[in-house]
Design a protein around this nucleic acid. Structure first.
Length: 228
DNA sequence: TTCCGGTCCA
DNA sequence: TGGACTGGAA
């Protein structure tokens, strides 16, 4: 089976097993941006604590984040770790919005996908995954988010070699929905990444735990007599 | 100790 | 390509 077809099968199987994930868990697009920074190599549970701190301090908005002193911002986001570089990175994001987009997230979102992605990648603390997460979940652009979980799934299931790069994996993920209507791509990529994270947390950690995984090969490839 | 919904730099 | 970065939970 072609890798893109196999990945599509994985998508439908995860959707059946887990149901829609309703991502990204946030009230506003800007809160998505903050969460995307804070969750870098950090559990979402820890991020929720920081988000609660920021909400209480009215720092979940652009104006709030611009106004808060950086040392106070560090204290607020302490639960999710890397407080020094993440505080500086969040300040740099607001500075970029102010300098290039009149302090408005929607004007950044209005840029072409490639243009917005380059602008994001120029920022400190934004690598390819954070850039794509912001593009997809905060700005509504149809891009695939590649994380360590997806890398494990596609390599462990033999769709790509173990040394596959970010762009190779992203290219595979993009091709998975190439046959779907263009207007559905954002929705599919949204759901797909969320489902990959879920199966990753449950089964595809550094050491795989395949027992009960909806993607276990037996479950993924049913015997011929089970196919109508 | 290991692991987090990674990024950066030598 | 390997380590440092940060704090907290299991």
């Amino acid at each position: 089976m072609k890798p893109s077809a196999k990945l599509h099968r994985i998508y439908t199987r995860l959707l059946t097993a887990y149901g829609p994930q309703r991502w990204w868990p946030a009230e506003t697009a800007f809160e998505v941006v903050i969460g995307a920074y804070l969750t870098q190599n950090t559990s979402w549970r820890a991020v929720e604590k920081s988000i609660a701190n920021l909400a209480a301090a009215h720092c979940l908005t652009i104006d709030g984040l611009r106004a808060v002193p950086e040392d106070e911002l560090r204290t607020l986001i302490r639960p999710s770790g890397y407080m020094i570089r993440k505080a500086a990175a969040l300040k740099a994001f607001v500075a970029m919005l102010d300098r290039d987009h009149a302090g408005r997230l929607d004007l950044l979102a209005a840029q072409r996908t490639a243009t917005a992605r380059e602008a994001l990648l120029r920022l400190p603390g934004v690598g390819p995954e954070t850039a794509d997460a912001i593009l997809l979940y905060a700005l509504g652009h149809p891009v695939a988010v590649v994380d360590e979980y997806l890398r494990r799934v596609v390599t462990r299931h033999g769709m790509l070699p173990a040394k596959a790069k970010y762009l190779e994996i992203q290219s595979l993920a993009l091709s998975t929905f190439a046959g779907e209507p263009i207007e559905s791509h954002v929705r599919h990529h949204n759901e797909f990444h969320a489902l990959i994270v879920e199966v990753g947390k449950r089964h595809c950690g550094p050491t795989p735990r395949c027992a009960g995984c909806p993607l276990a090969e037996k479950a993924l490839t049913p015997p011929p007599d089970a196919i109508p």
